[in-house]
Computed example of a mutant assay.
Amino acid sequence: MTAKKTTPSSSSSKNRRRQNRTAAAADSGNKNISDVAALDGLINQLLNAHGESDDVLQKVCIENIMAFDQQMWLRMASRIDNVNTDEEKDAIADVMSKCMKIIEATLKKAEETIDRSSEQLQRIISAAADQTTMEFDVPLKSDALRRMEAEIKNCTVDEGMLNTTYAWIRKSDEDKMDGMVHILQKFLQVYAAGELNKNKAPLDELLGCSNTDDWPVVFQKLVNEGYGEVAFTKELQQRMEEVVLGLTNGSYAQRVQAEYLKEVEERSKEYFKQV
């Protein structure tokens, strides 16, 4: 005897769909309530900061700059309409006005920083080109790296420029511009070499050599002078700790210098195996 397959009744299916819609509406309502509560919490924080000083307000505003979207401005306007006293209205309106000015100034400064970083980075990259033909000989040779190093000394390599460099690398990679990727990576190496070279230990002779093609020669020279793997590894570890502890965690400066030291470490292991 074959068992019959049963199918949900039409009424049962409708009930489940109704329950699902009700649950979805409840979730949406809870989410909206949660979002409004979060906005109100930030607005209250801004009002408290405003009560302390404009500097404190600016700090809180910039720290939460990504929260200032259309919903935020609408909620502030709604709060103005719904408070009970003119004093409360004036306070929120004043905060709203000051936050607008702070954000506008911050975004303008960010745009100026990006423009300045792009201009300086362009000068550094151009320095690596043949100064007669203005064409690039890739991979870059020692003389091109020296010109790049000299130009870096005339610029301010900060987080903005390093951020711009990584953005250019991504774009060049997407556009299959391998030569430009190489040049930009060499800039990062030259920058890291200059930052890490303290001119106080044998290790600095290697760290300060931004042309990685010359590293085997430098390794051999250091070994010939009695600088062995134990001393090398100890000093390299100390430099790594300085980068980790001395630079802002997660910064581009920390990332570039740490990657440079990591490459030194990997190449040194390969070299000392052959000694």
Rank of each mutant, 00 (worst) to 15 (best):
L39G: 00
A25P: 08
T6R: 10
P139K: 01
E104R: 09
T133P: 14
A77D: 08
K59E: 04
A128D: 03
R16I: 00
K31C: 02
M134R: 06
M161A: 02
L222W: 03
I92F: 06
L107E: 15
S268Y: 07
I169R: 06
N30H: 12
D204V: 06
E265L: 12
D35F: 01
T106D: 08
V243Y: 05
A26D: 07
E135C: 02
C61H: 00
I103H: 03
V218Q: 03
E63H: 11
N44S: 13
E241H: 09
R116F: 05
M148V: 15
V223L: 04
R267F: 11
T7D: 10
W168F: 13
S12I: 13
Q131K: 15
K171D: 12
E195C: 05
K200L: 01
D54S: 12
E87T: 13
L74F: 11
A67Y: 04
A23R: 14
M100L: 03
K14H: 11
L39E: 02
R255C: 11
M134W: 08
K273Q: 07
N20I: 13
R17S: 12
K153V: 12
D35S: 02
R239H: 13
D137K: 12
C99K: 05
D137R: 08
Q220T: 03
D178C: 10
K269L: 10
A26L: 05
T133D: 11
A192K: 07
D27G: 11
F272G: 06
I92K: 00
I103K: 03
E52P: 01
M177W: 08
M177H: 14
M100V: 06
L222H: 04
A49H: 03
R170H: 12
S11I: 11
M148K: 01
K234L: 14
R239D: 01
E270F: 02
S97H: 07
R146L: 15
V36C: 06
D143F: 06
C155A: 10
P202I: 00
Q274T: 14
Q185T: 13
E87S: 10
N82E: 10
C209D: 09
I125T: 05
A38Y: 11
I103S: 05
T133Q: 13
W168H: 07
N84V: 14
R146I: 13
Y166H: 09
F187K: 01
S126G: 04
S12G: 07
K273I: 07
N82M: 14
A253I: 05
A38P: 06
V95A: 01
R21M: 09
Y166K: 08
M180L: 14
T113S: 06
E135A: 07
P8H: 07
G179S: 15
S13I: 04
N84T: 15
E242D: 14
T106S: 08
V95Y: 00
M1G: 10
V60W: 01
V223Y: 05
N84L: 06
F272P: 01
E174V: 15
T156Y: 11
S13Y: 00
K141C: 10
A49L: 04
A25S: 09
E266D: 07
P202Q: 04
D54Y: 02
A128P: 04
K221T: 15
L184S: 12
L261M: 08
V256A: 04
K109P: 01
D173E: 13
S126I: 02
G194W: 00
K89W: 11
E104A: 10
E88I: 04
A201S: 11
Y271Q: 12
W73E: 04
